[in-house]
Computed example of a mutant assay.
Amino acid sequence: MTAAYTLYAKPGFTATTIERLCSEARISNRAFYECFGGREELLQALHERCVEESLAVVAKAVQEAPKTLDDRVKAGIRAYIDFTTADWRRARIMHVEVRRSGDVLTLSRQRAVDAFARLVEEASADFPQAAGLNRRLVALGVIGALQELLIEWLHSDEQPPIDELADVAVHIFIRSLGTP
């Protein structure tokens, strides 16, 4: 898993062969196949671990935040951005390689987005819906915005500061979830 965590982040999932994974991990191909059905299954396990860990971090931050919408949004976004960017490999697997893998992680990615959308919906449930908009669709929209901000951070020659990413994401979330 450790070898895949690094190799799937760079050079990337599509460029990483089972032979290279096994060489890096210092295991035989047979040992690999005793644990995983293929590199796709390993990528899914890595992605799901990253998602589970980040969901736990965000849920805890939101739960411990003061009970205002602004405070919940700020705490959740900051926790997510800090956790995701603390290790560039995690950020790449969750936001770049998950898309580059094609159909391999479609279901896993959909489950992750759904779990984060539920978290956003629950965190904002005590507040009026913005202009009567569908809360789930708003949650999906703001999640997409946050993902694009992190992709920009990963691909940019001059990475925007983490504080700036968080400020922009908070602005988008609060404007989207806030009352009209």
Rank of each mutant, 00 (worst) to 15 (best):
K74L: 05
E152S: 09
F83E: 07
W153Q: 10
A91V: 10
D103F: 08
M94R: 05
Q147F: 03
A75M: 02
E152Y: 13
I93N: 04
L119P: 06
H155P: 00
A166M: 09
F173M: 03
S176D: 02
H155Y: 12
V96E: 14
G76P: 04
I143N: 04
E152V: 13
T84Y: 02
A123S: 15
R118Q: 12
S101L: 00
V142N: 03
S156Y: 03
D167I: 00
P160L: 07
H155E: 15
I81W: 11
E164F: 08
E97D: 06
V138Y: 05
V168Y: 08
A125N: 11
F173S: 06
R78C: 00
F116G: 05
G141H: 09
E164A: 13
D114H: 12
T85C: 10
E121C: 06
S108E: 07
V170C: 11
R111D: 00
P160Y: 08
T106Q: 06
G132S: 07
V98D: 12
I143V: 02
L140P: 08
Q129D: 14
Q129M: 08
I174E: 07
W88D: 07
R175E: 04
G76S: 03
R175P: 01
F116M: 11
A115P: 14
F83C: 09
E152K: 14
A166W: 00
D163E: 14
A75W: 02
A91L: 15
W88S: 10
D87G: 04
S156D: 11
I151L: 12
L150F: 04
F127S: 01
I77D: 08
N134D: 15
G102R: 04
W153F: 13
R109G: 00
F116K: 12
V120M: 04
G141E: 03
A115D: 13
V142C: 03
V96I: 15
R100E: 12
N134C: 08
